[in-house]
Design a protein around this nucleic acid. Sequence first.
DNA 1: AATTAGATCTCGACT
DNA 2: AGTCGAGGTCTAATT
Lengths: 208, 208
Amino acid sequence: MIARCQVDYAGRLTSHLPMATRLLLVKSDGSVSIHSDDRAYKPLNWMSPPCWLIVDGKTWIVENKGGEKLVISIAEIFQEPGLVKDGVEAHLQELLAEHIVTLGDGYTLVRREFPTAIGPVDIMARDAGGGSVAVEIKRRGEIDGVEQLTRYLELLNRDPLLAPVQGVFAAQQIKPQARTLAEDRGIRCLTLDYDALRGIDTSEFRLF
Amino acid sequence: MIARCQVDYAGRLTSHLPMATRLLLVKSDGSVSIHSDDRAYKPLNWMSPPCWLIVDGKTWIVENKGGEKLVISIAEIFQEPGLVKDGVEAHLQELLAEHIVTLGDGYTLVRREFPTAIGPVDIMARDAGGGSVAVEIKRRGEIDGVEQLTRYLELLNRDPLLAPVQGVFAAQQIKPQARTLAEDRGIRCLTLDYDALRGIDTSEFRLF
DNA sequence: AATTAGATCTCGACT
DNA sequence: AGTCGAGGTCTAATT
């Protein structure tokens, strides 16, 4: 993710980075690093695994067992490419787009990979009443997915041609904490049945 | 950019990374680093500035004065967020979208930020004959912008609903090397006059 | 330009 | 878990 942010580290030393545009990397082991737009080798700040990232609105806090703490305050997000979809996640998106009524009667597909300034929304749809619906799809629904969808909704709802935009968090399994957070924010949770969606998949019988 | 790639380094030592999914960072000082999806601190491979990146199709070669060489062979691109637009570049896109006939008589706008699997194309348009046109916009047109547009065109031309897609490389200034490369690949170069586009901008006189 | 000491060193190997 | 030594060390300061 590329964002204007300021960073404070307190641990083996204390340091402060003033507000500026930087690259934030969150890797699959939970590690976080902050890069400037130069230098190949060393990040400006980092937290090595094992460590844990807590996202609270525009504040990211990364902590480890030893009490080291990295606090990132985000002012503006320029790009947020998000997770790289694995095969299952990509297939879930295809299947849900193809069977968009899984979201509810009368739903229609607007488009997959709907572009926003910070990255594409998995699926944009319209409900029976013509209202906009943004769908975030995950294999396992966790809090970071809810946070991502929240950021998309915040942005999409600024567009008077789309607003109000309803959010749907769709995943094969949704963690209780993620469900609570989503519902607290008015985001609907939808558990996807991969096998059932595959079962009603007609693409394999079509020539084109 | 996130891609499946293999990497060979020859310099102070020689090393080889087998084909796998990795994160490639190209920073504004020309430095290149290759990260795995774990570890916050150290890249798998890197080239510190000053060094130079030459993109030749799916092969990236990074070299420095000392004769060190990093060769990256790309098999598949999963994500390519591209450069973060600065204010001028974002405004150029708005202005060109608004005055799409700058591209030629009879041109019509399809959409800004047209999504593809590797990232959004700045502008998609149709020419007078209804043919698809992909436009990449830059402040300064350099070789990397031509390479980016080439990758988009390669992808877009696989879509039978769009193909054939013509490419237009639009910038305030286009470097001779970039122009030569673009024209060699059948990409049209268009020099944008920011002030002239602003002059015909009507948005500031409208209420909405 | 060359040298030297420090690093949130990191990273791996070995006890 | 601690200790040791190397690293494409890198990085900044000093000579």
